[in-house]
C-alpha cells in the first residue's frame, strides 16, 4: 500500500506537470496561464518530495538516545525537503512578480488576454 501511495504521488506530480505546461502554452487568459505555471512548479515539488520518501523512515533528527548507525540506516533523506522548501520561496517570488506585471498590463490594455497583450497568435482556449 505504501508503494502504491508513492506511485500515486508520482502520477499526481506528472499530471500536475502536464496540466501546467498545457495551461501555460495554450490558455489565453494570463491568470490561467500563471495558475498553470504554479501547477507546474507544484508538480515538480511533489515529484521531489515523493522521491525523498522512505518507507518506514524516521525523521532526520539525531536524538540523544539514538546510535549513529541506527540513525544512518533509518533516517529519511533530508535533502529533497530542503530543496522543495527553497523552491517554494522562489515560486512565490516569481508568482508575485508575474501578477504584478499583469496588474500593470491590465491597466494599460484593459485586458488580461495573452493574444491582446503579448500578441500571441496561438490557439485560443478559454
Amino acid at each position: 500500500m505504501i508503494i502504491d501511495s508513492q506511485l500515486m504521488s508520482f502520477f499526481t506530480a506528472g499530471s500536475l506537470i502536464v496540466i501546467g505546461i498545457f495551461a501555460a502554452l495554450f490558455l489565453d487568459n494570463l491568470i490561467k496561464k500563471i495558475i498553470g505555471l504554479a501547477f507546474l512548479a507544484d508538480g515538480v515539488n511533489l515529484f521531489i518530495i515523493t522521491m525523498g520518501y522512505k518507507a518506514g523512515g524516521i525523521v532526520y533528527i539525531l536524538l540523544p538516545n539514538m546510535t549513529i548507525s541506527n540513525f544512518a540506516q533509518n533516517a529519511s533523506y533530508p535533502l529533497p525537503f530542503a530543496l522543495v522548501l527553497t523552491n517554494i520561496v522562489i515560486g512565490a517570488s516569481t508568482l508575485a512578480v508575474m501578477l504584478g506585471l499583469i496588474i500593470v498590463l491590465n491597466k494599460k490594455h484593459g485586458s488580461i488576454s495573452a493574444s491582446k497583450i503579448l500578441g500571441d497568435k496561438g490557439e485560443k482556449i478559454e
Binding site: L30, L105, L118
Partner: peptide
Amino acid sequence: YETALKYILLGNIAGPL
C-alpha cells in the same frame, strides 16, 4: 512590460523543467 512578462512566463516553464 510586455517583453518582461513574456520572458518571465518562459522562465517559469524553463526553471521548473
